[in-house]
């Protein structure tokens, strides 16, 4: 049971990083990113491609960061010529393009079979100890990202992002460079998403295209909406709650003696139902965004 709980907590912390990343983009900068999973995929495939070419995890990490920077800059560049709604659709399309590449370019990505056998990043005297160290590192990274994003969003930069979110034309008239802000927000937000992917790849020891399905993006969206757009604490709470609910699904299945195939369907129902329920009944989420004075 301890190992199971540790697994749930590790995955929740990894999703927490993804949720903080999406929250900075959408909650603060107003960039409605439906291709969030692509940023995560840069981290997973960075680790896998380095491993496949006999390079160590450090190269994998650097490769993941380079890949995610390129994708983030491309996302930001698209924002120059597209309105926010069309931009959201374009990010979804880019996520799907990357999924198609991961599925079909077998020579590079292992295709549908993916790349397996990645080493665990931390090896203690037992496998459990290795997992404990990985969980501690992920938790520390989550706390550091939270702190950094809190500082950033309380600064002049954060105020600029919120101004861009609320009134882009008005922001431009005051001298705020929207292209630059979009670029900075995407780059800063992309890093924890890629780190999450990198840690996930080494934790699961396998990377495959099914990890890039767009449903994963909507899992992160559900966490952010449940927790509260624009609230760092909220989205982390959203990630933990959603992950706990997901973990409870197999137990519910056993309790109600449901067939095994119901597990995936129940999880999808939880995502859709949770998203819809909160959007209709509590759009501000469990912990709403704090508004007030910022002097930067």
């Amino acid at each position: 049971m301890f190992e199971f709980s540790l697994h749930v907590a590790t995955i929740a912390a990894l999703y927490g990083l993804l949720a903080l990343s999406l929250n900075l983009q959408t909650g603060f900068a107003g960039l409605v990113n439906f291709g969030q999973i692509a940023l995560f995929g840069c981290g997973t495939y960075g680790a896998a491609l380095a491993f496949n070419n006999q390079f160590g995890p450090v190269v994998g990490l650097l490769l993941g960061l380079v890949l995610v920077s390129l994708v983030a800059l491309f996302f930001a560049r698209l924002g120059r010529s597209l309105g926010s709604d069309y931009w959201g659709i374009a990010t979804l399309a880019i996520g799907q393009i990357l999924l198609t590449i991961a599925t079909n370019e077998t020579w590079l990505t292992g295709g549908a079979q993916g790349i397996s056998g990645l080493p665990q990043l931390f090896t203690g005297s037992t496998r459990l100890q290795g997992h404990l160290i990985l969980f501690s590192v992920t938790l520390a990274l989550l706390a550091a990202t939270w702190w950094l994003f809190h500082r950033l969003t309380q600064s002049k930069f954060g105020l600029s992002l919120r101004l861009m979110r609320e009134e882009p034309q008005f922001a431009a008239s005051l001298g705020y460079d929207l292209d630059g802000l979009r670029r900075s927000a995407m780059l800063v937000a992309a890093v924890p998403a890629a780190l999450s992917g990198f840690l996930f790849a080494h934790y699961m020891t396998f990377v495959g295209p099914d990890q890039l399905f767009s449903t994963e993006t909507f899992v992160v969206w559900t966490m952010v909406v449940i927790g509260g757009l624009g609230s760092h604490a909220g989205v982390v709470v959203g990630a933990i709650l959603t992950q706990m609910l997901f973990a409870a699904v197999p137990f519910a299945k056993d309790f109600f003696a449901l067939p095994s195939e119901y597990v995936a369907a129940m999880r999808l129902t939880l995502i859709g139902g949770g998203l819809l329920g909160f959007l209709l009944l509590r759009p501000q989420g469990l912990i709403p965004e704090k508004v007030g004075s910022i002097r930067g």
Binding site: L159, E166, E167, S173, D177, S293, I294
Partner: peptide
């Protein structure tokens, strides 16, 4: 537009939604 404030010393007062209601007057 964002450079005109600095290079051409232009101030613009929009018609509506011209204040950031979640911030203080000073901010």
């Amino acid at each position: 537009v964002h450079r005109r404030v600095r290079t051409h010393h232009v101030g613009f007062v929009p018609q509506t939604d011209n204040v950031f209601t979640t911030l203080s007057v000073a901010d």
